[in-house]
């Protein structure tokens, strides 16, 4: 079953073509790692999936529901407000800068949207949130404000916050890029656990080790185009695309 079916995504920032017709298919339980040099459009692709960026052309179908389609005139047509929100809520998003709500405690961060957006029962959501915090190893931090936490801890809270919405898909936008090297491990471990639980994931990352070991598929993007994709083993040991060869040479040595 296809969880994400994005076709021919075109995105321009003014005159700059960032995505030049990208296709992305993700099946249930797949972990897709998107790698590539900065400025290649990989973060933009991810942000298009949950409407943080409005595409110029293309089709995005999430879990069988159409978020955006392009009409005969080439204009993108998004699902209406409520329908779009429902589709967006199927995807949890983890940002490079965590983006926790600083005025709320860890627990409040987790239960905010399930209670106020999904209108679920506070007691029930709280119970689930506590289980999630245990999963990411932060049970003792439930009443602490985010600024008191390390970057790695904040990012694990951000993952738990996204999971509290019970998403079908998790999107990670360079989740370890703003962390100190010694803190990336704890976040990657949390993501690895998620992958083992068969969560469908799209991960934009510079962590080649993670892409190689955890991803079921790796996509290499450069200049707004998917240059090469395939299973990690093949892609890392036997890259065919010249750009990919040069990229791997730089990041692996």
């Amino acid at each position: 079953m296809k969880k994400i079916d994005a076709r021919n995504i075109i995105k321009n920032f003014g005159n700059l073509e960032v995505l030049k017709g990208i296709d992305l298919e993700v099946n249930e339980g797949e972990v897709v790692a998107v790698i590539g040099p900065s400025g290649s459009g990989k973060s933009t692709l991810l942000r298009c999936l949950n409407k943080l960026e409005i595409i110029n052309q293309g089709t995005i179908i999430i879990d069988g529901e159409t978020l955006v389609d392009t009409d005969a005139k080439g204009e993108p047509k998004y699902a209406s407000g409520e329908a779009a929100t429902k589709i967006i809520c199927k995807m949890g998003m983890v940002f490079q800068q965590f983006n926790l709500f600083p005025h709320m405690t860890v627990l409040e961060n987790l239960i905010e949207a399930p209670v106020n957006v999904q209108k679920r029962d506070v007691a029930e959501v709280t119970k689930e949130a506590e289980i999630l915090l245990e999963k990411v190893g932060l049970s003792d931090k439930r009443d602490v404000y985010p600024r008191k936490l390390s970057g790695g801890q904040q990012q694990r809270v951000a993952i738990a916050r996204a999971l509290a919405m019970k998403p079908d898909i998790m999107l990670f936008d360079e989740p370890t890029s703003s962390l100190d090297p010694e803190l990336t491990g704890e976040v990657l471990k949390t993501m690895r656990n998620l992958a083992e639980d068969r969560m469908t994931m799209v991960v934009v990352t510079h962590e080649m080790g993670f892409a190689r070991e955890v991803a079921t598929k790796v996509m290499f993007m450069a200049d707004g185009i998917v240059q090469e994709q395939g299973c990690p083993e093949e892609l890392f040991t036997n890259p065919k695309n010249e750009r990919l060869q040069a990229f791997l040479q730089k990041v692996l040595h």
Partner: peptide
């Protein structure tokens, strides 16, 4: 208030009123 706060709220399905009332204005 950083753009990331709005984006986080948006990905959690909050509408404009919820985002302003619960996330932005308290900060």
């Amino acid at each position: 208030i950083p753009k990331g706060q709005y984006e986080a709220a948006q990905t959690l399905g909050m509408n404009y009123v919820q985002t302003m009332r619960r996330i932005v204005l308290p900060q």
